[in-house]
Design a protein around this nucleic acid. Structure first.
Lengths: 152, 152
DNA sequence: AACTAAATGCAATACTGTTGCAAAATATCG
DNA sequence: CGATATTTTGCAACAGTATTGCATTTAGTT
């Protein structure tokens, strides 16, 4: 049943993805990408750093920023700008390029909603040329919504 | 034809609005609100400071921030978070509370699309509780789109 | 094992935005 | 109009995210 008894979950997948780029496969990149792949939400720089630390991976803040930007460049991750003015990154499988983001006001996590393709219907004023549509939702994520219901 | 030969355009309206608040009518507030009223786009702190300077109004950065936040508190302006991680403010008449924003990639201006009420139709994954919907569009504003067409 | 280009770590810096506090200005009252 | 109480301002210092330069280390190659 075990595919690997040496590597943490997702590290294998990360390594695999990285080997298909023109860049180098370094611990920082493997670790960061693996963290992003395992996450079910878009992570901030801080969250990534903390998670890395918990796994025993020490990365300099600057290296982290650079690794993340590089992953975005390579198309292995994507970057969103949260309402709190911090970048968040995700590399979840099956999430299309264009999708919506959900900011949970309780746990402050940001989720990428892959199913939310811009099925937008609206009347745009004349003259505007649209390149990208960004849809941000705010409210409670399923987990926090449940907690609120249970408690209240 | 002249309504006032002493005050710049919009300053009268700004004064009028400010007099209906519980706060004081100060040069900084009049100037800032007047600038926002005259603008046809949402302005960043920097843009406001610059415009103020051109009008001979010198305001401290901190005062500007405070004046802007105060205007938002009073409901005379509203605040949006741009993709470039800076706040932008607008106080245009007729713009409803909830509306979409258009970021022009050429002139970097942000326009409030009052006609773009969230007529959104989408299939949200189960369990999410929505409080707010934020729709940001990116592309070329009418002015820049025209320039591009004329040139190319 | 040696080499070269790429990636890292450290220090310093840029930039937006915020906080504390004394000085100045507004609106009010006599 | 002038004194007063309270709000607002300006300055300085600070907080936080993100970026840049450069010497050192490392990955991948020969």
């Amino acid at each position: 049943m075990t595919q690997s008894n040496l590597l943490p979950d997702g590290e294998l997948a990360a390594r695999n993805l990285l080997q298909h780029t023109s860049g180098r496969v370094t611990p920082a990149r493997v670790g960061v990408l693996s963290i992003l792949l395992n996450a079910n939400a878009a992570l901030s720089h801080q969250e990534i750093e903390q998670t890395a630390l918990q796994q025993g991976l020490i990365v300099d803040r600057v290296t982290l920023y650079r690794a993340l930007d590089w992953l975005v460049e390579q198309g292995l991750a994507h970057k969103i700008s949260g309402a709190d003015r911090t970048w968040r990154y995700n590399a979840q499988a099956g999430v299309p390029h264009q999708h919506a983001h959900f900011h949970c006001k309780d746990c402050a996590q940001v989720f990428c909603l892959e199913s939310l393709q811009p099925t937008l219907l609206f009347a745009l004023p004349n003259g505007y040329q649209i390149d990208e549509v960004e849809l941000n939702l705010q409210g409670r994520c399923p987990t926090c919504a449940n907690k609120a219901t249970d408690a209240g």
